[in-house]
Design a binder for these strands. Structure first.
Lengths: 198, 198
DNA sequence: ACCTGAACACCGTTCAAGT
DNA sequence: ACCTGAACACCGTTCAAGT
């Protein structure tokens, strides 16, 4: 009886679910992304989600894509190393602006469109820099690993400095200047990569 | 009535619990380390564990220490970069020989003795190489991140190649030679670090 | 001092049944 | 086609009670 384009206005589809999960992430962090909680947020029962998504793994991959959606690309005119530097900083800003964003990325495989596009574009930068395919692949890997893992560690330090508001620091355990640390590692990496371009 | 050194032979103490958890890790992987499963393995009820450990987080940190226990240190006579290369390979071997070992390390903070000792010794290598404290700290960080994260990615690829036994590879998605990739990244990193020594 | 029973407050996932 | 009720098989943790 009910035809397809009737305004049954099914208020539920995959993108709505991903959006809800993304909001949970922003407000409460990775561990709070729960099938049950996302369902509740949408006003439905948790079992219903399984009509629209395969499982939690898939949902997390879609959330990861959401995180990668808004990352801006560097201007092509710059040197490859300047492009990579700019992009790394943009990426870090994005990952720090969304709670636990790096956790989501590290826990999921890059299977979704925006994320894949991101990887391909970075790959292209290495190729354009004059690397052969093999080295470009390895370099991209190193680059990826560095950024994501650094933020992961950064979360830990941010967590520690929040949990211990001793005001006057314990001096022997110096809390590092994360901004500086990040640039140092990035610099080191790019220095090394320069050598790999024949 | 019962004195302390009576042979009540309480067959349970913290090290036994850690050992049991470590065995679960080796046999079934990270996700199988469960308070309930560890308890069952020891023939006791899960509530009993809480007399000997604070919580699961602490248990995992102790398991992480167990992983770091057997890592051999490089001979001091070599160059700093050769020491770091040797050690990285030793570490990788260790992490690959224990299922999900890198996951445990990445999920826990370095709070335990063997692990801290490891970090301090590596720190010393950077200091001996002529770095100032700040750079030594950053370099150690980069080095740590690289090794652990690489293995984490390596697990994923090993998983993929196991799950898809297509025998004749799909050719367009080339399965990387992890050994080579690891050396490449390590090399790149060490190259870059060389520049940082004044 | 050490261990247990029993509960609490959660999970992800499935599936027959409803509309 | 889509959603629900109700269950299954799990979690970590607590705590009064036992010995």
């Amino acid at each position: 009886m009910t035809t397809h384009n009737e305004s049954h206005h099914k208020m539920l589809d995959q993108s709505k679910i991903v959006q809800a999960a993304f909001e949970v992430l922003q407000l409460e962090g990775y561990k709070s992304i729960t099938i049950r909680k996302v369902a509740e947020k949408l006003g439905i029962k948790s079992a219903s989600l399984y009509w629209h998504i395969k499982n939690k793994k898939e949902l997390l991959e879609l959330v990861a894509d959401e995180i990668c959606k808004d990352i801006q690309f560097p201007v092509e005119k710059e040197n490859w190393d300047e492009q990579l530097r700019q992009f790394a900083n943009q990426w870090r800003d994005q990952l720090l602006s969304i709670k636990d964003a790096a956790v989501v990325l590290s826990e999921t495989a890059p299977t979704t469109p925006y994320r894949i596009q991101l990887i391909e574009r970075l790959h292209q930068i290495f190729i354009n820099a004059g690397m052969n395919k093999e080295n470009a692949f390895s370099s991209l890997w190193l680059y990826n690993i560095y950024i994501t893992s650094f933020i992961l560690e950064e979360y830990r330090f941010l967590g520690i400095s929040k949990e211990t508001p001793h005001s006057s620091t314990p001096t022997h355990l110096t809390i590092p200047d994360m901004e500086k640390e990040f640039q140092f590692g990035l610099d080191t990496m790019l220095m090394g990569l320069k050598e790999k371009i024949e």
